[in-house]
Design a protein around this nucleic acid. Structure first.
Length: 274
DNA sequence: CTCCTATCCTGCGAGC
DNA sequence: TGCTCGCAGGATAGGA
């Protein structure tokens, strides 16, 4: 489901919900069988603590409490939603995995049909495991044409696979990789090391542009994404190439092509991205 | 090392 | 209408 813009929008929604720093009354684990088993005992220790703030790193949400932090990765189909005035005994939905009851009479519920998501305690070990290998944030000053160009040296993978590699830059997934390459007018199939410094500079600008526009549009809703307040995004209406195989390019009228690159569906304009 | 493939899951839409 | 098949926003282990 979510790439950086969607996770960022979820974060912003959670911030509004958690503005008054509610206390965790209870963490309830309905289905601990996510990608990795949820460390329930460690997380239970956060009961009673106030949630101080929510951050985002890459596609992870990080919740900070008085007693330590925890993290959430939405995988493909993970979603947080808020419900009001429900009890721990109330019926849960089929794919509801976690419920966090707050002293504000609200409840945060994590829902994830495909179970690719991650929910974990935040400590030195998990930070190392989850974050140590991650590259720069695409919207930060650490991500420039020069740093991207340098990190692609010697890489023979396709450029599209490279910008989806979280070690090169975080947050860019399958949709925004195709969209950014279209805006930069670069063919996704070229080898990563073939990108010139000039075009690396352009690509960085276009990655940043597409992510910022998507955040402003509330993210992209393909089938089931919505933010924590239940609102869907509308950036999917602005896709230039993603999911537009065999359709005309909005810019030049040329044919949008589709192929599998590094195991993922990829879209590009046969004329704009020569 | 680097790169590629298969895999973890469920749900949904296309096509028959 | 009902079935099967292929594919879906991510990340990683394991093999070449």
């Amino acid at each position: 489901m979510p790439e950086l813009p969607e996770v960022e929008v979820v974060k912003q929604g959670l911030e509004r919900i958690l503005l008054k720093q509610p206390r965790i009354v209870q963490m309830q684990f309905l289905r601990p069988d996510l990608r990795d088993p949820i460390p329930q005992q460690l997380l239970k220790k956060l009961e009673g603590a106030k949630i101080l703030r929510v951050r985002r790193r890459a596609k992870y949400l990080i919740f900070e409490t008085q007693a330590g932090g925890f993290l959430s990765h939405l995988g493909m189909t993970g979603a947080w939603r808020r419900e009001l005035d429900i009890s721990a005994k109330s019926q849960s939905g089929l794919h509801d995995h976690i419920r966090i009851f707050l002293d504000s009479a609200e409840c945060l519920i994590y829902h994830d049909p495909r179970r690719f998501g991650i929910f974990d305690i935040l400590n030195e070990e998990t930070q190392r495991k989850r974050f140590a290998h991650l590259g720069p944030e695409p919207l930060s000053k650490d991500f420039t044409g020069l740093t991207l160009w340098q990190s692609l040296r010697g890489k023979s993978v396709s450029l599209k696979a490279a910008i989806m590699d979280q070690k090169i830059v975080v947050g860019v997934g399958n949709i925004y990789a195709s969209e950014a390459l279209f805006l930069a007018k670069i063919k996704p199939q070229i080898k990563a090391h073939q990108l010139s410094k000039d075009r690396a500079h352009t690509l960085v600008q276009m990655i940043q542009a597409v992510l910022e526009r998507a955040i402003a549009a509330g993210g992209s809703t393909i089938s089931d994404y919505s933010n924590a307040e239940g609102r869907t995004g509308y950036f999917q209406n602005q896709f230039k190439v993603y999911d537009r195989g065999n359709k005309p390019c909005h810019e030049c009228g040329g044919l949008i092509k589709q192929a599998v690159i590094a195991g993922r569906s990829t879209y590009w304009c046969s004329k704009c991205q020569a």
